[in-house]
Simulated scan of single mutants.
Amino acid sequence: MASKLANLEVLLYVAGDNGLEEQNLIELLEVDGEELGQLVTRLQQKMKADPDSGMQIIHIANTYKMTTSQQTAKIIEKYFQKDLTKNLSQSALEILSIIAYRQPITRIEIDDIRGVNSSGALQTLIWRGLIKQDGKKDAPGHPKLYVTTDYFLQYFNYQSLADLPLIEDFEDTTDGEEIDLFDSKGSADKHLEKEG
């Protein structure tokens, strides 16, 4: 019979991109929250101690996920050939910022803020896995609502949306300097962790 540690590892593996919420793991493994925390710590240490392991366990928004480790970022980037920080257009980054701070938000509301059509860049962000559709607004036409994904948090190395820089921090900028809300967080060679 497999150990609880082995069961945790295989559950996170088969859960893939979605990961598993703490409560689901507690029920599946028949443990309490404290024991789950101990199992996760042991599995994290086991993977970290193995120089031949390219996997890690991360914790985002009450969900555990098995992902590739930061040390394997370059080979994953080479495999997918999509460095987000280089390939995302300025308009896509602008839209991503708007969604991050104003979510849930419709395309029409994004267009109103920007003054231009955002359809193409929205599709790019969906394809990249940084945003997703999340229901429809209770308004004429029932437009789709967009929100950021857990992968957005993972990619920019945030634990939750509460970690985003405060907009107020940027309002006193008077030198006309452009501000990158994702600077130092979006470096693909440091933070690209493609889910396993």
Rank of each mutant, 00 (worst) to 15 (best):
L192W: 15
L25Y: 09
K78A: 12
T149K: 11
A139M: 06
N87L: 07
N87F: 05
Q90W: 11
L192M: 10
Y155Q: 03
V31T: 11
T106H: 01
S91E: 01
Y158K: 01
E109A: 15
T124I: 14
S69C: 06
E171P: 01
I108F: 07
Q71A: 09
D169P: 00
I26T: 03
L164A: 09
A162G: 04
Q133D: 12
N24I: 15
D32S: 10
F80G: 07
Q90E: 15
F152E: 15
Q90L: 14
P165T: 02
K46M: 03
I113F: 09
I179C: 09
L192A: 04
I131M: 14
D111S: 09
E94R: 15
D111M: 02
V31H: 14
I76L: 13
F80C: 08
G129S: 03
G141I: 08
H59D: 11
S91D: 09
Q38N: 13
V10W: 04
T67A: 14
K48W: 12
Q81T: 11
L84I: 05
T124Q: 11
Q23L: 15
K74P: 02
Y64P: 00
L181W: 09
L5H: 04
E94H: 13
K132S: 00
K48T: 02
T85H: 06
H59G: 07
I105S: 02
L8I: 01
L29C: 03
N62M: 14
V116I: 06
D150G: 01
E30F: 07
Q154N: 11
R107W: 00
V116D: 15
L88I: 10
A61D: 13
L161G: 11
E171S: 13
T85V: 08
L145Y: 07
Q45L: 11
M1F: 06
G135W: 06
L130R: 09
Q70N: 08
Y64G: 02
Q133V: 14
S3D: 00
E34H: 05
W127S: 08
M47C: 07
Q154V: 03
E178A: 08
K74Q: 12
D112I: 08
R114A: 06
I105C: 05
G176S: 01
A61T: 09
I76Q: 09
T174D: 05
M66F: 00
L11E: 04
I60V: 10
K82N: 13
K4Y: 03
G16C: 05
D150H: 12
Q90C: 11
G120A: 08
L84V: 12
E35L: 13
M66N: 01
I126A: 09
G19Q: 00
A162R: 07
G115I: 08
K74I: 11
E168A: 13
G196C: 10
